[in-house]
Amino acid sequence: MAVLVVILFVAICLFFNLLGVVSLFRFPDVYTRLHGATKCTTFGTLFAAFAVIAHSVARYFATGEVRFLVLIIHTLVAAGALLVTNATGAHALARASHRSGIMPAQAVVDRLEERESEKGGATA
């Protein structure tokens, strides 16, 4: 029973993590790659954490050892830390690549570029 739940979580984790890898090779520019890399790998790692939690719950009820409860708490803290830092890191990388002059490929509209050129025009 516990094995089936863990297999389900692990299958979702592997699917999205591998999709994150594929998106890095398939998308044309750094912004779309960030979409794939951030969302898919965060979701996949979250499900890896869920799989570990399911495993720990099953082991706790099987053995009654308290260290599995500690493992659950620490895994939850790690997943929460990852959820916050990944989103913020993606935001920082996107802003940095736009400021370093990489324009989005195949873009239909770029308001940030318009604002920056306006500002450049005003000072020049």
Binding site: L19, C40, F43
Partner: peptide, 24 residues
């Protein structure tokens, strides 16, 4: 939102159907 976002991105990775842009 996280769940729908991931299904959406998964679809786009597989089909490659994108129309990117930066909006305000």
């Amino acid at each position: 939102g996280l769940l729908t976002a991931n299904i959406d991105v998964a679809k786009r990775v597989i089909t490659g159907e994108i129309r990117p842009g930066i909006v305000k």
